[in-house]
Design a protein around this nucleic acid. Sequence first.
DNA 1: TTTTGAAATTTGATGCAACAAAAAAATTAG
DNA 2: CTAATTTTTTTGTTGCATCAAATTTCAAAA
Lengths: 242, 242
Amino acid sequence: MFAAPKKGKEALLGDLAPIDRHSSLGESAYATLKDSLIRGAMQPGTKLTLRSVAQVLEVSTTPARDAITRLIGEGGLINAGPKTVIVPYLSLPDLDEITAIRLSLEGLAAEQATNHVTEAEIHELENLQERINRGLDEGRYTDVLDANKDFHFLIYRRSGMRRLVTIIESLWLRMGPAFNGLYPEFAQSRTGVSNHLWALRGLHDRDPAAVRGAIENDIRSGYRRLSSQLAAVGEQGGESRS
Amino acid sequence: MFAAPKKGKEALLGDLAPIDRHSSLGESAYATLKDSLIRGAMQPGTKLTLRSVAQVLEVSTTPARDAITRLIGEGGLINAGPKTVIVPYLSLPDLDEITAIRLSLEGLAAEQATNHVTEAEIHELENLQERINRGLDEGRYTDVLDANKDFHFLIYRRSGMRRLVTIIESLWLRMGPAFNGLYPEFAQSRTGVSNHLWALRGLHDRDPAAVRGAIENDIRSGYRRLSSQLAAVGEQGGESRS
DNA sequence: TTTTGAAATTTGATGCAACAAAAAAATTAG
DNA sequence: CTAATTTTTTTGTTGCATCAAATTTCAAAA
């Protein structure tokens, strides 16, 4: 059938080159699209066709197809019909589900990170928080959102759990488009600030439960604002068949 | 750039046809490969080439490529080199991470399911448990594993959280290959039985915490057996770069 | 104006060939 | 026999043509 596994020849060179091979048109097309989605650069309902994506990304249909297929697989795009791929709407039930999962997973990641994070990294987090505050003051809300994302993922990555981070990313991917059209109302809130400060303190004190609690509060407060705005915007919520 | 979203024309025919279009060579190639992986039909380290997969599945390289790409995306296969895709080994750290995530997510799913499951479904679960017991008695361990999987996922699906179930599936996908070569030792244990009974009782009593506890115990006891056997088998654990 | 239906267009799926990179095999040099 | 080097084969990537299905366009009929 398939090739049998080879004998594991041990690394004799001390694990010299961890060679990341993240280069291929398909890979970067995927990364680019994914980034657009997470950033909320694409409006829910936007229809993506193979050829239009290929054209925008300046590649042939093959890499474009790769990207779209993978994104559908993780729910970042959905099949809304026979030959129709769109950026998904986030319905309230969808938001509820994603929030529940986020609380579990980001809580876990935050907890785990507490024991691995270094002082230098905590300092880096403080810098990010500075950037958030400044962005809030100066009305640069895109910056706020970006820095907020960096803040969270810097913590999550310190969990040392790679797959966990990947899964969390796929959840943010699902939330991204919902922010579209919600600027700047959403980013204006300063409710997140105190949660971040609590998280920083917990990190510094090596108190996993405190960090988890802070992150959970942050997620919950985001949920409240987002769900009320979603309800206000109206009933455009589509099905979320994956 | 891309097409703007269309106005949502309401369904006038009472939501007649929820038409699921799960047909395409790429889709079924993916499903087939994924199933093999989950069932533990493929040995860790097995090398998959585009053309060999295409040949076995009797399709061209395009659908085979689709399937492989998607599976790599969710960690069911990994890139172990420039032109090498293999079924991943499960290292102890990997198992630790996956178990931690499973406890969070399957616990959540079990909890949620408690409020949605019907009496009929509980009865169905009891039948599955029968099948497990019978398989254990008669030494049909593949059957045991299959029924066990059905038991768990029947519960998880009742959570009503589709994406959650998908994520959990991707975790089982990662565990599957590790069972290969571990039959029948692994399936022989009856430690899972009492956990399942506790879960059933909790479901019947509508006690979410009890159901979660039972599922968590089940996962933990599986972890113990699997980790000790993994350690026994030796140091074949490969990197888990996704 | 609205409706209907047929023609033209666009779309995703699929297979395939060309290509460069990598791996494997064969050959030669020491 | 071993090691180095060349040749051959295999591999993933990419672009593209084809096809059937779905969508859109458009004009004729009501």
